[in-house]
Simulated assay, not measured.
Amino acid sequence: MNDRLKALADAGVSIWLDDLSRERLETGNLAELVQSSNVVGVTSNPAIFQSALAKGERYDAQVRELAGQGADVDRATLVITTDDVREACKVMRPVFDATDGVDGRVSIEVSPGLAHATDDTVAEAATLYKTVGEPNVMIKIPGTKEGWPAITETIAAGISVNVTLIFGLEQYRNVMEAYVAGLEQAADNGHDLADIHSVASFFVSRVDTEIDKRLDATTEGPGTDGSLKGKAGVANARLAFKMYEEFFAGPRWEALEAKGARKQRPLWASTGVKNPDYDDTMYVVDLVVENTVNTMPEATLDAVADHGEVRGDRVRPFYDDAQAHMAALAEAGIDYDDVIEVLLKEGVDKFVVAWDELQSTLGASLEAARS
């Protein structure tokens, strides 16, 4: 067991792997990461599946089988992706059982083209949950305005949800509200609230990428201060955790907690550093605080294992610093609301492109198998 990753886990951070492929499953790599690297969960997204299918000869036999059955590309996509998630759920099941369902989770996302379609998102979430058929699956729903009621309805049906593509604080507040409203409805529907879990995936590195780009374009005034760069992602996430602590308190939450409800844990996503000038562990070690999840690509996981320094709680003591930094960015002319709007649209668009590429690759493979 790696000492640095163990220290991270001991600090209350659940380490999830932001990657999934059939190769990881069939070679035993995922199981090995559970044993050696404290990995206690897995996240996937359209880009991850697109990469896996584009590179993976391990899918060829199943593609031929599906082609022989006359499956169209939508059916083939559903079968292949849910098969991988189901097998990953089985690998993670011992962790799920040992942590009373808190960890051992595997996430699968609704089609990104449904990001602005509430009813279709709810329907696909139910389909994915039923098709995977494992209790430790989490359905990823984007934190768009149309996604908020879909989160509520899905939670109300007793299905655990990973809310993805969260960038802004007001957006995050609406996500937490959607979760709590879902729990209230789930209780009315007779569900055991202790069985319902959720994480809120707050994206980190992309905030720095967008804000740094805007700072670089500034030619005069405080925006030209280079010390403002590379700090917004962490500051924004720290303020999100402050909001989380404030939200999950008080009479409304206490009434749900008395019925067994679980807090919706913050999950730090997009933790691979985009700027090579920055410390490649910063979005992990600078966001250490208990009751959080950090989902990492394997390169980030390896970097933390090699040289990540866990220095205790790096969130609560820095609330004032985080607020001051965001105020300094505003003074420098950075429009926070516009940054968040751009990032959310860009995030949805990127996943749509990846999904279209996945289906194009799979469609070509099906046609080749039929010829």
Rank of each mutant, 00 (worst) to 15 (best):
D83S: 14
F49S: 04
G158W: 00
G101W: 00
Y129H: 14
D60M: 09
P142D: 08
V95C: 14
E87H: 13
V122Q: 01
I108K: 02
G133F: 07
G133E: 08
T121F: 00
S44K: 00
T99L: 14
V95D: 12
V79Y: 04
P149C: 09
T127Q: 14
D83I: 09
S51Y: 03
L66A: 09
I139S: 04
A125K: 00
V132H: 01
A150L: 05
S44E: 02
N136C: 11
K55C: 07
K55A: 15
T131E: 12
D74E: 14
F49L: 08
Y59I: 02
I139G: 03
E153K: 13
R93L: 15
A76M: 01
A88R: 00
A157H: 05
K130V: 06
A123Q: 03
T144V: 04
V63Q: 07
D100M: 11
G56A: 08
G41S: 09
P46T: 08
Y129W: 11
Q62T: 15
K90G: 12
A156N: 04
I139R: 08
T118Q: 12
A71N: 05
G113Q: 12
A71M: 06
G147C: 10
A67D: 10
S44Y: 00
G113P: 09
A71L: 06
G133K: 07
K140S: 11
M92F: 10
A150H: 04
T118H: 09
A88P: 10
V73G: 06
E153H: 11
T121E: 02
T43G: 04
D120T: 01
T82L: 02
T152D: 10
D103F: 09
P135I: 02
V73M: 03
E146G: 12
P46K: 11
D72T: 01
N136V: 08
L66T: 05
V91H: 09
Y129Q: 10
Q69R: 15
A117T: 11
Q62H: 15
T99I: 13
S44M: 00
P135L: 06
R58A: 15
K145T: 15
D74Q: 13
G143T: 03
V85I: 11
I80M: 15
G113V: 02
A67C: 08
G56I: 00
T82M: 06
M138F: 15
G113A: 08
L128F: 03
A67R: 12
I48W: 03
V95G: 12
T118R: 10
V91F: 05
V106L: 03
A156F: 02
T131Q: 13
T77N: 08
S111C: 11
G147D: 06
M138L: 15
G70W: 10
V95A: 13
A76K: 01
G143D: 01
N38P: 06
V85P: 05
A54F: 05
